[in-house]
Design a protein around this nucleic acid. Sequence first.
DNA 1: ATTGACCTTTACGGAAACGTCAAGTAGGCC
DNA 2: GGCCTACTTGACGTTTCCGTAAAGGTCAAT
Lengths: 127, 127
Amino acid sequence: MDAERRFYSIGEMGDEFGVTARALRFYEDEELISPERRGTTRLYTDRDRVRLAWILRGKRVGLSLADIKELLDLYDIGDGRRTQRLKTVERCQEQVDKLKRQRIDIDATIKELESFIGLVKSLDQET
Amino acid sequence: MDAERRFYSIGEMGDEFGVTARALRFYEDEELISPERRGTTRLYTDRDRVRLAWILRGKRVGLSLADIKELLDLYDIGDGRRTQRLKTVERCQEQVDKLKRQRIDIDATIKELESFIGLVKSLDQET
DNA sequence: ATTGACCTTTACGGAAACGTCAAGTAGGCC
DNA sequence: GGCCTACTTGACGTTTCCGTAAAGGTCAAT
């Protein structure tokens, strides 16, 4: 164990995750990730990679960076006081509900687009 | 038939759909809806209501207004030439694929949030 | 020693999707 | 006719999420 702690440069991170260095610095400004430093150079760890993956998936499902930050923070404080935890659960539950509603809309949209595709394709059979 | 054609004012539309008049005018600027006019006043028909519902659902699933406009336009031109129709199907299919990928992300996020909620709640049982 | 690749911060720029006045008009009611 | 309310068209402001120079520091290779 003590598995040879690897670091990743901002460039490597960008390449691997398909984001620019500018974006990574921006996420840092917004306090979504806090890589270590060697001097001024950023060193990303595996923990940062996990967080970044979370951030990007959050973005893909339409969460704002603010939402994502809040959820990541909640993850970090999961062990706070009882009142704190109640709030945590509450906020998470809100997002879950929102995502579930969003899934319903997505399904409806997919369905409609697909049936439209079917219609247009059927027009194509004539001729 | 000839079912008593009703019109709706911009205010009614806003109230019913939960959007501001400003937003409706903006959608018109962007050519997503084109209500009739009596003088300068906008008159929305049922067709406009259907389009608006489509727009809002599109927004909820994360489509940009540009995407939505394109899809609405495709609906309108569904009867174009063959080449045109192929493009139509293609573009729709792209959106469908994108939405399907998005659904996968949503499911994963929901799952993760819910298991986190479970974790925090279990901490709450102690005490 | 110089080049090139990769890193840094600071700062202005820009699209998207409206919000928010401002100033004016049109129609209905008493 | 006067008032109220809802409507109109600009036009500038705002937030989010970065892009894009500008102006350099660092380190390895040539």
